[in-house]
Amino acid sequence: MGDQFQASKPIYMQIVSKVQQQIIRGDLQAGSKLPSVREMAIQSGVNPNTIQRTYSELERTGIVLTKRGQGTFVTEEHGVIAALKREMQDEVIHSFVNSMKELGVPPEQLIQKVEDYLEGSS
């Protein structure tokens, strides 16, 4: 506990990413209910105000919605989830490609390198 969060990013954003990952992996299905703010706070050992911010941010992006008196739910619009999935994948690819550029690997060698790596590790 405590050290599970990176210092460089706000805690609420780190939990946003965690929930987004659970949604695009399908651990949290479309239309399913998220834990209440209090439950989520207890699960992650985090201030409830922080979780409240997490939920507001998720809601702002449209991936979840709050139904008055019922709680917070994952969107049922699969298009929104698919878009988030692409966006998060693009982010990872972008940072990977950039890091490899900094190591002097030209883009045309990237695919070969990834294939070699995957073969080696299987």
Binding site: M1, G2, D3, F5, G45, V46, N49
Partner: peptide, 9 residues
Amino acid sequence: IAEIEALLD
């Protein structure tokens, strides 16, 4: 502090 950091406002 590490123990309670995530707990604090």
